[in-house]
Simulated scan of single mutants.
Amino acid sequence: MKLKICGMKYPENILEVGALLPDYMGFIFWEKSARYFNGTIPELLKTTKKAGVFVDQSQEEILDKVAKYDLQAVQLHGNESAAFCEELKMKLGKKIEIIKAFSADNDFDFEILKPYEAVCDYFLFDTKGKLPGGNGTTFDWTILKKYKSEKPFFLSGGIGINELNAIEEISKTNLPIYAIDVNSKFEIEPGLKNKNLLSNFKRKFDVANF
Protein backbone atom coordinates (compact mmCIF):
# COMPACT_ATOMS: atom_id res chain seq x y z
CA MET A 1 0.00 0.00 0.00
CA LYS A 2 1.39 3.37 -1.03
CA LEU A 3 1.32 6.72 0.76
CA LYS A 4 0.25 10.07 -0.67
CA ILE A 5 0.82 13.28 1.28
CA CYS A 6 -1.39 16.01 -0.13
CA GLY A 7 -1.82 19.75 0.22
CA MET A 8 1.82 20.79 0.16
CA LYS A 9 2.56 24.50 -0.14
CA TYR A 10 5.93 25.70 1.17
CA PRO A 11 9.28 24.81 -0.49
CA GLU A 12 11.23 24.12 2.71
CA ASN A 13 8.41 22.01 4.10
CA ILE A 14 8.13 20.19 0.76
CA LEU A 15 11.79 19.17 1.06
CA GLU A 16 11.33 18.06 4.68
CA VAL A 17 8.35 15.91 3.80
CA GLY A 18 10.00 14.71 0.59
CA ALA A 19 12.86 13.33 2.70
CA LEU A 20 10.32 10.87 4.19
CA LEU A 21 10.00 9.36 0.70
CA PRO A 22 6.23 9.32 0.21
CA ASP A 23 5.08 7.63 -2.98
CA TYR A 24 3.04 10.68 -3.98
CA MET A 25 3.04 14.34 -3.02
CA GLY A 26 -0.04 16.39 -3.84
CA PHE A 27 -0.24 20.05 -4.88
CA ILE A 28 -3.62 21.76 -5.01
CA PHE A 29 -4.17 24.07 -7.98
CA TRP A 30 -7.72 25.07 -7.05
CA GLU A 31 -7.60 28.76 -6.13
CA LYS A 32 -10.37 28.59 -3.50
CA SER A 33 -8.37 26.15 -1.37
CA ALA A 34 -6.44 27.34 1.69
CA ARG A 35 -3.70 25.02 0.38
CA TYR A 36 -3.64 26.56 -3.10
CA PHE A 37 -0.20 26.13 -4.62
CA ASN A 38 1.33 28.76 -6.86
CA GLY A 39 5.02 28.55 -6.02
CA THR A 40 8.06 26.56 -7.00
CA ILE A 41 8.40 22.85 -6.34
CA PRO A 42 11.94 22.00 -5.25
CA GLU A 43 13.55 18.96 -6.80
CA LEU A 44 12.29 15.72 -5.29
CA LEU A 45 13.58 12.18 -5.62
CA LYS A 46 12.09 10.44 -8.62
CA THR A 47 10.53 7.82 -6.34
CA THR A 48 8.00 10.48 -5.27
CA LYS A 49 5.36 11.26 -7.90
CA LYS A 50 4.00 14.80 -8.07
CA ALA A 51 0.21 14.91 -8.28
CA GLY A 52 -1.76 18.02 -9.20
CA VAL A 53 -5.23 18.41 -7.70
CA PHE A 54 -7.87 20.18 -9.81
CA VAL A 55 -11.55 20.99 -9.25
CA ASP A 56 -13.70 21.48 -12.37
CA GLN A 57 -10.90 23.29 -14.18
CA SER A 58 -10.31 23.43 -17.92
CA GLN A 59 -8.17 20.91 -19.73
CA GLU A 60 -5.98 23.77 -20.90
CA GLU A 61 -5.22 24.79 -17.33
CA ILE A 62 -4.53 21.19 -16.30
CA LEU A 63 -2.20 20.63 -19.26
CA ASP A 64 -0.41 23.89 -18.47
CA LYS A 65 0.22 22.87 -14.85
CA VAL A 66 1.34 19.37 -15.87
CA ALA A 67 3.95 20.88 -18.18
CA LYS A 68 5.01 23.66 -15.81
CA TYR A 69 5.51 21.42 -12.77
CA ASP A 70 6.35 18.12 -14.52
CA LEU A 71 3.44 16.34 -12.83
CA GLN A 72 3.19 12.57 -12.96
CA ALA A 73 -0.44 12.39 -11.85
CA VAL A 74 -3.60 14.47 -12.16
CA GLN A 75 -6.28 14.23 -9.48
CA LEU A 76 -9.74 15.41 -10.54
CA HIS A 77 -11.72 16.40 -7.48
CA GLY A 78 -14.80 18.02 -9.01
CA ASN A 79 -17.72 16.92 -11.16
CA GLU A 80 -15.61 16.02 -14.19
CA SER A 81 -17.44 13.66 -16.55
CA ALA A 82 -16.11 10.38 -17.87
CA ALA A 83 -15.92 11.98 -21.32
CA PHE A 84 -13.78 14.79 -19.88
CA CYS A 85 -11.45 12.21 -18.31
CA GLU A 86 -11.21 10.25 -21.54
CA GLU A 87 -10.33 13.31 -23.60
CA LEU A 88 -7.81 14.48 -21.00
CA LYS A 89 -6.23 11.03 -20.89
CA MET A 90 -5.69 11.11 -24.64
CA LYS A 91 -3.98 14.50 -24.37
CA LEU A 92 -1.83 13.54 -21.37
CA GLY A 93 -0.69 10.17 -22.66
CA LYS A 94 -0.23 6.91 -20.81
CA LYS A 95 2.66 8.04 -18.61
CA ILE A 96 0.56 10.48 -16.57
CA GLU A 97 -1.95 8.94 -14.20
CA ILE A 98 -5.51 10.18 -13.81
CA ILE A 99 -7.01 9.82 -10.34
CA LYS A 100 -10.76 10.54 -10.22
CA ALA A 101 -11.97 11.52 -6.76
CA PHE A 102 -15.46 10.93 -5.40
CA SER A 103 -17.02 12.29 -2.22
CA ALA A 104 -18.42 9.37 -0.24
CA ASP A 105 -21.10 9.08 2.41
CA ASN A 106 -23.56 6.37 3.46
CA ASP A 107 -25.78 7.12 0.44
CA PHE A 108 -22.99 6.92 -2.13
CA ASP A 109 -24.05 5.09 -5.31
CA PHE A 110 -21.15 2.99 -6.55
CA GLU A 111 -22.89 2.56 -9.92
CA ILE A 112 -21.74 6.06 -10.91
CA LEU A 113 -18.18 4.73 -11.13
CA LYS A 114 -18.78 2.44 -14.10
CA PRO A 115 -18.34 5.02 -16.91
CA TYR A 116 -15.02 6.07 -15.39
CA GLU A 117 -13.42 2.64 -15.15
CA ALA A 118 -11.93 2.64 -18.64
CA VAL A 119 -10.75 6.27 -18.60
CA CYS A 120 -9.08 6.64 -15.18
CA ASP A 121 -6.10 4.89 -13.64
CA TYR A 122 -7.33 5.10 -10.07
CA PHE A 123 -10.31 6.22 -8.05
CA LEU A 124 -10.07 8.17 -4.81
CA PHE A 125 -12.71 8.13 -2.08
CA ASP A 126 -12.86 11.16 0.19
CA THR A 127 -15.32 12.30 2.84
CA LYS A 128 -18.32 14.22 1.55
CA GLY A 129 -18.27 17.68 3.14
CA LYS A 130 -18.47 21.41 2.54
CA LEU A 131 -15.18 21.40 0.60
CA PRO A 132 -14.08 19.13 -2.27
CA GLY A 133 -11.36 17.82 0.08
CA GLY A 134 -9.45 18.58 3.24
CA ASN A 135 -12.50 18.46 5.49
CA GLY A 136 -10.57 16.62 8.19
CA THR A 137 -13.12 13.88 8.84
CA THR A 138 -13.30 10.21 7.89
CA PHE A 139 -16.28 8.53 6.29
CA ASP A 140 -17.69 5.15 7.23
CA TRP A 141 -15.31 2.76 5.49
CA THR A 142 -17.78 -0.13 5.80
CA ILE A 143 -19.65 1.29 2.79
CA LEU A 144 -16.70 0.11 0.69
CA LYS A 145 -18.08 -3.41 1.05
CA LYS A 146 -20.35 -2.36 -1.81
CA TYR A 147 -17.34 -1.66 -4.04
CA LYS A 148 -17.32 -4.40 -6.69
CA SER A 149 -14.78 -2.97 -9.12
CA GLU A 150 -11.21 -4.20 -9.53
CA LYS A 151 -10.01 -0.63 -10.15
CA PRO A 152 -7.40 0.26 -7.47
CA PHE A 153 -8.23 3.28 -5.34
CA PHE A 154 -6.82 5.82 -2.93
CA LEU A 155 -8.45 6.02 0.51
CA SER A 156 -8.68 9.59 1.79
CA GLY A 157 -10.56 11.80 4.24
CA GLY A 158 -9.37 12.79 7.70
CA ILE A 159 -6.79 10.02 8.02
CA GLY A 160 -4.37 10.57 10.89
CA ILE A 161 -2.11 8.51 13.09
CA ASN A 162 -5.13 7.26 15.08
CA GLU A 163 -6.46 5.55 11.95
CA LEU A 164 -3.53 3.12 11.65
CA ASN A 165 -5.47 0.29 13.30
CA ALA A 166 -8.43 0.89 11.00
CA ILE A 167 -6.09 0.88 7.99
CA GLU A 168 -4.66 -2.43 9.15
CA GLU A 169 -8.14 -3.93 9.45
CA ILE A 170 -9.35 -2.76 6.04
CA SER A 171 -6.09 -3.94 4.47
CA LYS A 172 -7.11 -7.50 5.38
CA THR A 173 -10.11 -7.32 3.06
CA ASN A 174 -10.11 -8.03 -0.66
CA LEU A 175 -10.57 -4.36 -1.51
CA PRO A 176 -8.02 -3.11 -4.09
CA ILE A 177 -6.70 -0.27 -1.91
CA TYR A 178 -3.74 1.19 -3.76
CA ALA A 179 -2.79 4.06 -1.46
CA ILE A 180 -3.62 6.02 1.67
CA ASP A 181 -3.96 9.78 1.21
CA VAL A 182 -3.22 12.05 4.19
CA ASN A 183 -3.49 15.81 4.57
CA SER A 184 -5.16 17.94 7.24
CA LYS A 185 -4.56 15.67 10.26
CA PHE A 186 -0.82 16.32 9.90
CA GLU A 187 -0.91 20.08 9.58
CA ILE A 188 0.38 22.94 11.69
CA GLU A 189 -1.67 25.23 9.44
CA PRO A 190 -3.20 24.69 5.98
CA GLY A 191 -0.40 23.62 3.65
CA LEU A 192 2.26 23.35 6.36
CA LYS A 193 2.85 19.78 7.47
CA ASN A 194 4.17 18.59 10.84
CA LYS A 195 7.30 16.73 9.75
CA ASN A 196 7.73 14.88 13.06
CA LEU A 197 4.15 13.66 13.16
CA LEU A 198 4.36 12.53 9.55
CA SER A 199 7.68 10.81 10.23
CA ASN A 200 6.12 8.86 13.09
CA PHE A 201 3.16 7.88 10.92
CA LYS A 202 5.38 6.89 7.97
CA ARG A 203 7.57 4.74 10.20
CA LYS A 204 4.60 2.84 11.62
CA PHE A 205 2.99 2.64 8.18
CA ASP A 206 6.15 1.08 6.73
CA VAL A 207 6.56 -1.36 9.62
CA ALA A 208 2.96 -2.51 9.23
CA ASN A 209 3.67 -3.22 5.54
CA PHE A 210 0.00 -3.26 4.60
Rank of each mutant, 00 (worst) to 15 (best):
Q75W: 07
Q75V: 10
H77Y: 11
H77M: 07
H77S: 08
G78V: 05
G78D: 08
N79F: 12
N79Q: 14
N79H: 13
N79C: 10
N79M: 10
N79T: 09
N79G: 09
N79A: 14
E80T: 00
E80K: 01
S81H: 06
S81Q: 05
S81T: 13
S81I: 05
S81K: 05
A82D: 07
A82P: 01
A83G: 05
A83M: 09
A83H: 09
F84A: 04
F84G: 04
F84N: 03
F84L: 06
F84C: 03
C85G: 04
C85I: 03
C85F: 02
C85L: 04
C85D: 04
C85R: 00
C85H: 03
E86W: 06
E87G: 09
E87V: 10
L88W: 00
K89S: 14
K89M: 09
M90V: 09
M90Y: 08
M90S: 11
M90W: 07
M90I: 11
M90R: 13
K91G: 07
K91F: 07
K91I: 05
K91R: 12
L92Y: 05
G93L: 03
G93H: 03
G93S: 02
G93R: 03
K94I: 08
K95N: 13
K95C: 08
I96C: 00
I96S: 00
I96N: 00
I96T: 03
E97V: 12
E97I: 13
I98D: 02
I98T: 03
I99F: 02
I99Q: 03
K100H: 11
K100G: 08
K100E: 12
K100A: 12
K100V: 09
K100W: 11
A101R: 01
A101D: 08
F102M: 05
F102S: 04
F102K: 06
S103A: 15
S103F: 10
S103C: 14
S103I: 07
A104R: 12
A104G: 12
D105C: 10
D105V: 09
N106E: 15
N106V: 11
D107P: 02
F108S: 08
D109E: 14
D109H: 12
D109W: 10
F110T: 04
E111L: 14
I112K: 13
I112H: 06
I112N: 06
L113N: 02
K114G: 02
P115L: 01
P115W: 00
P115Q: 00
Y116D: 01
Y116P: 00
Y116C: 01
E117W: 04
A118S: 14
V119D: 03
V119C: 14
C120T: 15
C120D: 11
D121P: 05
D121L: 11
D121V: 10
Y122T: 11
F123T: 04
